Amino acid sequence: MLDLWRLEILRRFAAHGTITATAADLGYSPSAISQQLATLEREAGVALIERTAQRASLTDAGRELAEHAARILAAAETARSRMRARAGTVSGRVNVSCIHALAPALAPHLAALQRAHPELNVVAHETGSATAAAAVLEGRYDLAVIDDWSTHPPTEDSGLSVHRLRREDIVLAIPADHPLADQPGPATAPQLRQIVHDQTWLCAPTGQLSRAAGDRYLSTVDATPPRRWEFEGLHILAALVATGAGVAFLPAGLAQEQAGVTALRLAARMQRTILALTRTTTREDPAITACLHTAQQALSSSR
């Protein structure tokens, strides 16, 4: 009989490619992971790992078993979810991740959910939107709340359920005392080019989804910031705009909530979508479903 936990280790090893990375992912020592894989080889009766002095890699049999492992583990999780649905109790451990800008809005609702269900243990994490989907599929998180700044947000993919929570406009956030703060209409392309030229441009670091979307938008109006400040976190950017340090693209709700900031609509619309990600294999799990419904109630809106 092949052990499910060892199949999970093999699946993670196939994804990461090294014993060290697999051990770091699972929170074990490399020697413990090697021992578990060696035990799995004995259970399978065939060599799964080819080991050299420098590295370990999957054999053909190891790659084949890793493919089977993904299907076996998915079936096991589906069966467990259905049995939990039959029991009907909201209990157990649910790993939830959320981008930090939305955590203050989501956290009180998750805390209330735990109080309502004492046998439920929600473990909250912070993660970036770019890596969340892979983390959910790998089982590190059961639910991830992210933002997507692309024109076409993802739809349900193999193994991943995508739940749209809300769609919101992106605005140009400027200090309240800026000359254009009383302008009733949207910021035109010439105005945006002038603002970007005159003001320090505040944005996320390279690699962040908001940074990529903002840079794409600026390129469409031929605006190149001569001065950039890069900070993690949209709330930090909003606070900096309020001090008069510069201007930024921000979600409309965040810009409107920040004192000292005026939100200018953009002539060509830009939006972001707030999404919740879960695995299709857990769609019937009462605990994960309860956390998803809580996120929908806390974060869904029409703005």
Rank of each mutant, 00 (worst) to 15 (best):
G88E: 13
N121S: 15
V136C: 12
S150W: 00
A85D: 12
L37G: 04
T78S: 13
R86K: 11
M83Q: 14
D25G: 07
P118D: 02
P104S: 09
V145N: 00
H100R: 10
D148F: 00
A130F: 11
Y28Q: 08
G62R: 07
Q36N: 13
Q35I: 03
R71W: 06
A85F: 01
R93E: 14
H100Q: 07
A53V: 03
R63G: 07
V122A: 08
A116Q: 10
G27M: 02
R80L: 07
S150I: 00
S57T: 12
R63H: 08
S29Y: 15
A144L: 04
L40C: 02
A132S: 08
S34D: 00
H100W: 10
R93K: 12
A101S: 05
E64V: 07
I99Y: 02
R140K: 13
P108H: 14
A47W: 03
G88K: 00
A79E: 12
E77W: 14
L106R: 07
P108S: 10
L120V: 03
D148I: 05
E119L: 14
A69C: 02
P118M: 07
G139R: 15
I33Q: 10
D25R: 09
A74V: 05
A85V: 03
A105M: 11
A32T: 09
I99C: 09
A101P: 10
D148R: 05
P30C: 02
S57A: 11
A87R: 15
G88C: 03
A132F: 08
I99L: 03
A69D: 13
A103S: 02
E41G: 03
L73D: 00
R55T: 04
V145Q: 02
P104I: 03
A132G: 01
A135K: 12
V136Y: 07
E64K: 08
G88T: 05
E67I: 09
A56G: 13
D60P: 00
I99T: 01
H68M: 11
E43H: 00
D25N: 04
G92R: 06
T89R: 09
D60A: 12
H109Y: 00
T151G: 15
A79I: 00
T39Q: 14
R84V: 00
T78G: 00
S91N: 11
A135P: 01
H117Y: 04
E138I: 01
A44W: 15
A144N: 04
A130Q: 14
R86M: 10
I99E: 02
P118W: 06
I146H: 02
A116H: 11
T78H: 12
H68V: 01
A69E: 14
Q35R: 14
G128T: 13
I72F: 14
T59Y: 09
T78M: 14
L106Q: 06
L110W: 01
R140S: 10
H117C: 04
T59R: 08
S31T: 15
R86I: 15
S57L: 13
R84C: 05
V90P: 15
G62M: 03
A124N: 06
W149M: 06
A76H: 12
P108N: 07
T59Q: 05
A112D: 11
I33N: 05
R71K: 12
A85K: 04
A111S: 14
A116P: 13
A132T: 02
L65C: 06
T127F: 01
